[in-house]
Simulated assay, not measured.
Amino acid sequence: MKVGVAVKRVAPCYTSKTCHCCNVIGHRQGKRLACLNLSCGWIGDADVNGAKNMATLRGLVPPLEAPRYCLAHGRMLS
């Protein structure tokens, strides 16, 4: 806990390249991410997208010291 805010570490694997709206890996160029899912089509800041994915994952995955969950592969990494 830091300054009254709980901190939980999340593995960053593909978090900025996976669309936070539909979980499809998009095309990242610099700070811009374009979702490749035609029915979604989200475009925006890749870092903001990654932060939203990390916020979603924080309750679903174990800390970095344990095996990590990868959004792109939809499974735990050893």
Rank of each mutant, 00 (worst) to 15 (best):
R68C: 11
V61Q: 10
P12E: 08
S39K: 12
V3G: 14
R58G: 04
R75E: 08
G4K: 03
S78M: 09
L64Y: 06
K2W: 08
H20A: 05
K8M: 05
R28W: 06
K2D: 02
W42C: 02
N49P: 07
V5R: 11
L33Y: 06
L77W: 11
G44Q: 02
M1L: 03
L33Q: 03
S78H: 09
G30E: 04
N23C: 07
V24I: 10
P12L: 13
G30Y: 10
C21F: 07
A66Y: 07
V10W: 02
Q29T: 08
A72F: 04
H20R: 11
M76C: 14
A55L: 08
S16C: 05
S16P: 02
C22S: 01
H20K: 04
A11D: 08
V5W: 11
A34C: 12
L60R: 13
P63R: 13
L60W: 11
I43A: 09
S39W: 00
S16R: 12
M1Y: 15
V48G: 13
N53W: 00
K52I: 11
G41H: 04
A34H: 05
R32N: 10
P63A: 05
M76T: 11
L71G: 05
A6P: 03
Y14R: 07
V24R: 12
L57E: 09
V7N: 00
L57R: 13
H20T: 01
K17V: 15
H27P: 03
C70Q: 02
G44S: 06
T15K: 03
C19M: 09
V3H: 15
K8S: 10
A46N: 03
T18C: 06
G74S: 12
K17A: 15
V5Q: 12
G74N: 12
L57T: 10
V10Q: 00
G26T: 05
P63L: 03
P62C: 02
S16V: 09
Q29K: 09
P63D: 06
E65I: 09
C22H: 04
L57G: 03
L36V: 09
E65Y: 15
G74D: 07
C40Y: 01
G26H: 02
V3F: 00
R58A: 11
V3P: 08
A34S: 15
C21A: 09
A46L: 08
T56I: 05
C40L: 00
R58E: 07
G4V: 07
Y14M: 05
V48E: 14
L60T: 07
N49C: 13
G50H: 07
A46T: 09
N23K: 06
R9V: 04
K31M: 13
A46E: 10
G59E: 12
Y69P: 04
V7Q: 15
N37F: 06
C35W: 02
L57Q: 05
V48T: 13
V3T: 05
D45E: 07
N37I: 14
A55Y: 13
G59H: 15
A72E: 13
K2Q: 10
I25E: 14
V7M: 12
S39G: 07
N37Y: 15
G4C: 02
L38C: 13
Y69L: 06
R68V: 03
A55M: 05
Q29M: 09
A34G: 02
H20D: 08
L71T: 00
W42D: 01
I43P: 04
L38H: 12
G59D: 09
R9E: 13
R75M: 06
M1G: 13
D45W: 09
V5D: 06
K31A: 06
T56C: 14
V24S: 05
